[in-house]
Write a protein that binds this DNA or RNA. Structure first.
Lengths: 336, 336
DNA sequence: CTGAAAGCGCTTACAG
DNA sequence: CTGAAAGCGCTTACAG
C-alpha cells in the first residue's frame, strides 16, 4: 500500500504539493499536477481515509439510523440515499437498530456516531426530545425522513392528510363501518398517532362516531395486519371496509379476508398507504407516497447543510396521491 | 468533544494508561482502571475512530458490496449481517452498486474500499477473476454470499439442486410442459446459469427435451417475471407449469396468469425459489432458502477470518427445502 | 507555485 | 503497573 510519501518521491515534490494536486486545489502548476496524478495512478495510490479524517476533521461519511433495512420502505430509502451520497463522495454507515432498546439508546446517545460521521440521516423513528438533543450534539447536520423535528431538516408526507384521503375514498364509495389497522403507538418507531388521527378526523367530518372496537393494532407487518383484520372481520357487526396504515398490513388484511371466505371488494374493501412495490400486483388500492424521492431529497438536505451550515434546515412535506385499484368498491347491498 | 488527553488529565494518568484501561488490557491496576473509566464517563469521552485506525491499522468496519439493497433478499442479508457485525463492534459500510458498471468497477478495483475496511462482504454478485484479484488485494478477508470463489469464504445454496427440486415437484405432479423464467445471464449480477442448468438437467433426467421457446428472461424482478410469464402463457402450446428462478418473478407470473384468465393451479402451476416474505401471503409454492442465516453466517466467517487469518476460508452450502402451497397442482386434464 | 513543519488523536513497543 | 516517545498518514496555515 503506497502512501502520500511514495507519491511525493515518485513525482519529485513534497507531500504538501501531492495533497494539493490530488484535491484539485489551486496554486499548483499544471505541469506539477500532471506529474503528481501520473505518479499516483502508477502507484495505485489511495489516500488513507483515517489519516485524512484525523487531519481535516471530516470523515466524508454519513450515518443512517433506521429501525430496519429489511422492510420495503426503509430499504428503498437507504438505497436512494446511498446512491445520492455516493455521488457526492460520501460513504454510508448503516445503523439498523431493530427493536433493541439498548441499541437505540447507544445510537442516539452518540456513542456510535460521534467523531465517525459528518451528518446523520434518521429514518422512520420519532425521537424523544432527549434523543434529539443527544443526536444534535453529535455535531453535524441531521435530516429526518417521516417526521418533523425542530432544528433538523426533514422530509415527510402529511400522515394525517394521507389517512383522511384513504378514509374519504371509502366514505365516497358509501362505506360507513370502516375498520382501522394501525401500528403500535407504544414503540415510537414509526409515524405514531397521525394516521390514526386522520382516520378519526375524517369519520368525524362525515358525522360518524369513533368506535374503539373498529381499531386494531397491526404493528406494520404483514402478519400483524392479517391478524388484526381477522379480528375485525369476526366482529358481530362486520366492517365493510378496512383502512390499514401501511400497504404491508393491508396485504395481510387482503389475505385474512380471503381466508374468511370474503370477496374483495364485493364483501369487504381494503385500502393501504405507501404504494408498496407489490401493491400493484395485489390490486391494492392505496395512498401512494414518493419513497425514492424522499430518500434522495433527505440526502441532498444533508449535503446542502454540510456546504452551507448557516442556512436554516428545510422542512418539506411531499404530496401523496390516491391510487384506486381493485381492492375497493361499494359496500355490499345488505350492509349499505 | 473531549480527547484522550482530557481523560488522562482528569484521571491523573498518562494517555497510554487511559488507552490501556479503556481497552481492557492487562497491566493496569484495578484502582487506576476505575479512575480512568469514571473520568471517561464523566467527560462523555468517545475515542476518535480515525485516530485509532491510523495508529492501529484497523478500521473496525466491514464493507458490504451488493447490487441492490432495495430487494428483499439483499435487504434481509444486509440486516442480519449488520446485526451480527454490530455485536462484534464493527461498523457496516454499504456499497450498493446498482446496475452501474462504473460504480461496480470502482468498488471492485478497491478504490472505494482500500484502507477503509477490515474485511468485505460480497452479496449476489459473480465477480470476474480480475475483480476477485482486485478485491483480494484490498487486504482483509472477503466472504461472499450466493457464489463460491476460491480463496474466499462463502455461503450459498446449491442453485442447481434447488432448481432440480422445483422441477421435480412439477414433474411429480404430472407436468410435462414446464416453462422457465430466469434472470439475465449477461449481467453477472446474480446466480447465473446454475438454476437454468438445474431446470434443464431435471427435464433431461425425466427424458424430456429442452425447448428454447419455453425459457424466458425475467431479470429477477416482479415486472420482468410478469412479462416473461405473459409471453410463455401466450404460446400456442401453452406450458402447464412455470418455474421461476426467484419468488419475485414467480409472483409476477402469478399475476400474469390471473390476468390471462387462467386459474392457479387448475390451469397453470407456478413455483419459485426463495420463500420470500410475501410467498406465504400469495400461496406460492417455492424452494425455501435460509436467507437470514446466510447473512449471519457470512458475517461470522469474516469475524473468524479477522481473528484467525491463517485458517483456510470455509465454503458452506446451506440446505433448501420444498414448501408446497396452493400455487402448484396437477396439470389440467385435457393437457395431461 | 512550493516546501518545511506543526498537529490531528490515538496505539504500541520500550524502558523502568 | 505506568509513562515518555515514536509513529500512523494525512491537511493546512505559514513562509518564501
Amino acid at each position: 500500500m503506497s502512501t502520500i510519501r511514495d507519491v511525493a518521491e515518485a513525482a519529485g515534490v513534497s507531500i504538501a504539493t501531492v495533497s494539493r494536486a490530488l484535491h484539485g486545489l489551486p496554486r499548483v502548476s499544471e505541469e506539477t499536477r500532471r506529474r503528481v496524478l501520473a505518479a499516483a495512478a502508477e502507484l495505485r495510490y489511495v489516500a488513507s481515509p483515517s489519516a485524512a479524517s484525523l487531519a481535516s476533521g471530516q470523515t466524508n461519511a454519513i450515518g443512517v439510523v433506521a429501525p430496519f433495512v429489511n422492510r420495503w420502505y426503509f430499504a428503498v430509502i437507504v438505497h436512494s440515499a446511498e446512491e445520492r451520497l455516493r455521488k457526492a463522495g460520501y460513504d454510508l454507515l448503516l445503523y439498523s437498530l431493530g427493536t433493541n432498546a439498548h441499541e437505540r439508546r447507544r445510537a442516539f446517545a452518540g456513542t456510535l456516531l460521534r467523531k465517525r460521521v459528518d451528518g446523520v440521516l434518521v429514518l422512520g423513528l420519532h425521537p424523544t426530545p432527549e434523543e434529539v438533543a443527544a443526536l444534535s450534539a453529535v455535531g453535524g447536520p441531521v435530516a429526518i425522513v417521516g417526521a418533523e423535528v425542530p432544528g433538523w431538516a426533514s422530509v415527510r408526507i402529511d400522515d394525517e392528510a394521507a389517512a383522511r384521503c384513504a378514509v374519504r375514498h371509502l366514505l365516497d364509495l358509501g362505506h360507513r363501518r370502516i375498520g382501522f389497522i394501525g401500528g403500535d403507538d407504544e414503540l415510537h418507531t414509526a409515524m405514531p398517532a397521525d394516521r390514526r388521527l386522520g382516520y378519526r378526523a375524517e369519520l368525524a367530518a362525515a358525522g360518524l362516531p369513533t368506535r374503539p372496537e373498529l381499531e386494531a393494532v397491526g404493528g406494520f407487518t404483514v402478519t400483524g395486519g392479517h391478524d388484526a383484520a381477522e379480528r375485525l372481520l369476526a366482529l358481530p357487526e362486520r366492517p365493510t371496509a378496512l383502512f390499514a396504515a401501511s400497504d404491508e398490513m393491508a396485504m395481510g388484511a387482503l389475505q385474512a379476508a380471503r381466508r374468511s371466505g370474503l370477496r374483495v371488494p364485493e364483501d369487504v374493501s381494503v385500502i393501504g398507504i405507501d404504494d408498496h412495490e407489490m401493491a400493484h400486483l395485489m390490486e391494492l388500492t392505496t395512498v401512494a407516497q414518493p419513497v425514492v424521492a424522499q430518500g434522495t431529497l433527505a440526502a441532498e438536505m444533508i449535503l446542502a447543510a454540510l456546504t452551507e451550515p448557516e442556512r436554516p434546515p428545510p422542512a418539506v412535506t411531499v404530496p401523496t396521491e390516491l391510487v384506486v385499484r381493485g381492492s375497493t368498491g361499494p359496500p355490499p347491498r345488505r350492509a349499505g
